[in-house]
C-alpha cells in the first residue's frame, strides 16, 4: 500500500492528542495483529484495528477518520484485553471518534455518530433515554424512514417501548451538566 506519512512533529502531536484524551500510548504498538485477529467486527471494517493503530502512529489523520473502522468498532474491548503491549485499543478508538467529532470531520455516511447525537439529545432533554423518539429520529436522519417500523407494534404490545417518554426530575440539571462539560472541553 502506498501512502505518504506525516512529518515527525505532526505525528507526535496526533499521538499526544490521543494520549491526552484516553491516556493510551499508541507508540507502544508493535503491529503483532492480535487485536485484529480477535476483533468480531473486523470482517466489516475497511482497515483492521491494527492498521488503524499504524496509521495513527504515522499521523495519517484523514485515513483514520475516514475509515469505517473507528465508526463501526463495537467497543467490545476484546482487543484491549488481549493486547500484549497493554494498549487499551477500545479507548484509542473512542479517542479517535472524539477527535473526529471535535474537528467536525465525521464522514456523512456513518450512522453510528448520528445515533450518538440523537441519544445524547434525549438525555439532555429528559435526563433519560426515550427509545421511541430515538428510533424515529434516527430513521429520519439516516434516510431510512421505515427501518424497523414492522417491529414497533410488537414492541408496544410487549411493553418494550412507551409512547410517553420517561423523565428524570433533574432533566434540567443534565442540560446544565452537559453545557458545563462542553465549556470545560472547549477551553
Amino acid at each position: 500500500m502506498k501512502c505518504s506519512i506525516a512529518s515527525d512533529k505532526f505525528r507526535r502531536k496526533f499521538a499526544e492528542q490521543i494520549e491526552e484524551i484516553c491516556g493510551e500510548r499508541i507508540s507502544l504498538c508493535y503491529q503483532c495483529g492480535k487485536c485484529s485477529a480477535g476483533c468480531p467486527v473486523a470482517y466489516a471494517m475497511d482497515y483492521l484495528p491494527s492498521q488503524i493503530t499504524r496509521f495513527a502512529q504515522l499521523g495519517l489523520i484523514d485515513k483514520v477518520m475516514k475509515s469505517s473502522t473507528i465508526w463501526i468498532c463495537a467497543s467490545c474491548q476484546t482487543c484491549s484485553v488481549r493486547c500484549p503491549r497493554g494498549i487499551d485499543l477500545a479507548k484509542v478508538m473512542d479517542a479517535l471518534r472524539i477527535l473526529a467529532k471535535r474537528k467536525g470531520i465525521v464522514p456523512k455516511e456513518q450512522i453510528a455518530p448520528l445515533f450518538d447525537g440523537i441519544f445524547l439529545g434525549s438525555i439532555e432533554k429528559y435526563g433519560r433515554l426515550n427509545e421511541l423518539s430515538l428510533i424515529t429520529k434516527l430513521n429520519m436522519a439516516s434516510g431510512r424512514p421505515f427501518k424497523d417500523v414492522s417491529l414497533l407494534p410488537i414492541m408496544l404490545k410487549k411493553g418494550k417501548i412507551k409512547l410517553k417518554p420517561q423523565k428524570s426530575n433533574p432533566g434540567k440539571e443534565v442540560r446544565y451538566l452537559m453545557r458545563k462539560v462542553e465549556k470545560l472541553e472547549s477551553k
Binding site: 445524547l120 434525549s122 428524570s168
Partner: peptide, 26 residues
C-alpha cells in the same frame, strides 16, 4: 435512586470522555 439519570452508555464515551465520567458520577 431518586431522580437517577442515564449513565450515558456508549454514545457518551465515544463523544466526550468527561461527559462519560460525569454522568455516572452524578
Amino acid at each position: 435512586i431518586p431522580h437517577w439519570v442515564c449513565c450515558g452508555s456508549s454514545p457518551a464515551h465515544v463523544t466526550s470522555h468527561l461527559l462519560s465520567i460525569a454522568l455516572p458520577c452524578k
